[in-house]
Amino acid sequence: MTSIDTPDRRLDGNALAGPLLELFTIDLSAAMATCVHCDGTAPLGEQQLYADAPALVLRCRDCTGVLLRYSADSHSTGIATVRADLSGLRLLVAHVPAAGASR
């Protein structure tokens, strides 16, 4: 993949996994995401990402309803402000190492 570089990029949730690592400690591309609008469920990486809105907008691949909006503005102070609207996700299921387990 060389992600397309022009101003109208419709990608998928695989490309959202990097930015989400600013907020979450695990890679969420394989996490199962259930849409609040239609109950459709698919891996986050398979959902549709609109990468050039003012925020990154993830839409349901089944009904195109908004699952998640995400933005990060970095400031000269070295602090970034992250905004995440997760209201379109009914459920997110991820498999993570159990607490105390060696990886």
Binding site: T6, N14, A17, D27, S29, A30, L44, G45
Partner: peptide, 27 residues
Amino acid sequence: GEVSPYLISDVQEGDVLELRGPIGGHF
């Protein structure tokens, strides 16, 4: 493109880029 022309035409051996990764647990 905003990024690829720079990576193709301007980047040279010894240059330093900012990289985040590896990423992806699905594909």
